[in-house]
Each structure stands twice: as C-alpha cells, then as structure tokens.
Amino acid sequence: MVRFGRKEVYLPNAVIALMKSEHLPATHAKFRVPLTFSKLDLRDYLYHAYGLRTDKIRSYVQQQRVQHDRPDATMPQQNKWFRPKAIKHMTVEMDKPFLWPEDPDNWEPWSKEIFNELQQNANDRDKPATRVKAAKMEGDTLATQARELLEGKKRWRRTPVDEEAVEVDSDVKI
C-alpha cells in the first residue's frame, strides 16, 4: 500500500500545468512539471492541493531541438548553436476519472482574442529567422534605394524640414 501525504506542500513555488490530451483515458492525466520535480513530489502535491490519489506515475524528459542561436538574440549568428531547456512531462493514473469541461461559447470574459494576439506576437518575436526574413522582405532597404539612385530610376530629394523648428540651446551664453 502506498502511503500518501508524507511530504506536506504548503505554498509550492513550482508551476504545474495540466495538459489536455485526447489519446489518454479518463483515468489518466498529463502534467508539465519543473525538471526538479520527482514522482513523489507530484503525488504529494496532488494529494495536498486537490485531495487526489494517484496510483501510478510515469515521467519522461523531452529534449528540445537544437536551434541556431538564442531566440532573444538581436542579431542571429550562423554557427552559434543553442539547445532550449528540456521539458518534463508526468502522466498520472488516478483512481477517479477526470473529464474536461466543455469549451464555453462566449470567450469574452477571458479575452481570448487578446491572448491569441499576444501569443502570436510572442511567437513571432522569439524566432530569429523570422526577424531576418522580415527585414529582407522590406522592399525599401538602403541598398535598393542607393542602387535606384545610381541607376537614375529615382531622384534624390531632401527630407522636408519643419519650418517652425526652434533651436533648443539658443539662449545659452558661452
């Protein structure tokens, strides 16, 4: 017999996410946990936080693919490699089945559109290759402007200067 509740969990500082997976039966639940979490930690956490008894726990660490450079790099470098942090998953077998609630028809209280927009912006920002491609796709780059000026396709014109511009340090005496 497995003894539950050996390690009391008061205020955990770990983020544990329940993941929806349709291929698992109703008595199984899949969690994304920190790399430092053990099976006993998850079992005691579920017991103390939710009163949930678990029978078996399987865990595996999923290594991420090697990428060129870091996602937050401003200028991606070609021969710089980076492997993102691994992700640890745990699948627990419960004594009672768990069924996911139905998705609501109205997502307005959760601001789902704003979340999706922020998520898309974050995904675009985290991909260095996307930034490089976007910069290359802009048609009015300095090189193309210079080429068009040299070939005579476009004429150079001054940038309009604001007539009402005031000099900032006009009253300073030296």
Results as ranks from 00 to 15, higher is better:
residue 29 A to I: 10
residue 45 Y to S: 00
residue 25 P to S: 10
residue 120 Q to R: 11
residue 171 D to F: 09
residue 81 W to Q: 14
residue 136 K to H: 09
residue 47 Y to H: 08
residue 129 A to P: 00
residue 146 A to T: 07
residue 65 R to D: 09
residue 25 P to H: 07
residue 66 V to A: 05
residue 96 K to A: 12
residue 157 R to Y: 03
residue 143 A to V: 12
residue 46 L to E: 02
residue 170 S to N: 07
residue 158 R to H: 09
residue 144 T to H: 05
residue 141 T to V: 02
residue 158 R to Q: 11
residue 42 L to N: 05
residue 150 L to T: 05
residue 143 A to W: 08
residue 47 Y to G: 01
residue 43 R to S: 11
residue 128 P to M: 01
residue 173 K to A: 04
residue 22 E to A: 07
residue 88 K to C: 07
residue 52 L to Q: 11
residue 70 R to T: 08
residue 91 T to F: 01
residue 171 D to K: 06
residue 89 H to L: 15
residue 151 E to T: 06
residue 66 V to T: 14
residue 103 D to N: 05
residue 95 D to Y: 15
residue 91 T to A: 00
residue 92 V to G: 03
residue 169 D to I: 03
residue 134 A to R: 10
residue 83 R to W: 01
residue 148 E to N: 06
residue 164 E to Y: 15
residue 87 I to Q: 04
residue 47 Y to K: 01
residue 46 L to P: 01
residue 103 D to W: 11
residue 127 K to L: 10
residue 95 D to L: 13
residue 87 I to R: 02
residue 171 D to M: 07
residue 92 V to Q: 04
residue 131 R to M: 02
residue 120 Q to D: 11
residue 34 P to Y: 06
residue 136 K to W: 14
residue 62 Q to K: 12
residue 40 L to D: 14
residue 103 D to L: 14
residue 35 L to Y: 03
residue 55 D to Q: 09
residue 82 F to K: 00
residue 125 R to M: 12
residue 30 K to Q: 12
residue 111 S to C: 08
residue 19 M to P: 00
residue 95 D to N: 08
residue 105 D to T: 11
residue 24 L to Q: 06
residue 160 P to N: 00
residue 125 R to W: 14
residue 152 G to R: 01
residue 104 P to F: 04
residue 135 A to Q: 11
residue 122 A to P: 00
residue 70 R to Q: 12
residue 120 Q to I: 06
residue 42 L to V: 07
residue 100 W to K: 03
residue 64 Q to Y: 00
residue 77 Q to G: 00
residue 137 M to T: 07
residue 89 H to C: 02
residue 136 K to Y: 08
residue 134 A to V: 09
residue 5 G to Y: 08
residue 37 F to P: 00
residue 146 A to V: 14
residue 152 G to Y: 01
residue 76 P to R: 01
residue 88 K to E: 03
residue 4 F to D: 13
residue 61 V to R: 05
residue 7 K to F: 13
residue 125 R to A: 11
residue 55 D to W: 05
residue 98 F to M: 10
residue 22 E to P: 03
residue 30 K to C: 11
residue 66 V to N: 02
residue 118 L to Y: 11
residue 20 K to I: 12
residue 82 F to W: 15
residue 64 Q to R: 09
residue 166 V to W: 08
residue 69 D to K: 01
residue 96 K to H: 13
residue 162 D to N: 10
residue 49 A to W: 03
residue 13 N to T: 10
residue 36 T to G: 00
residue 28 H to S: 12
residue 20 K to F: 12
residue 80 K to E: 15
residue 13 N to P: 02
residue 80 K to W: 08
residue 2 V to W: 08
residue 142 L to A: 08
residue 32 R to E: 15
residue 138 E to V: 12
residue 79 N to M: 10
residue 164 E to T: 07
residue 56 K to Y: 13
residue 10 Y to H: 10
residue 24 L to P: 04
residue 51 G to E: 06
residue 12 P to V: 10
residue 106 N to R: 07
residue 119 Q to E: 13
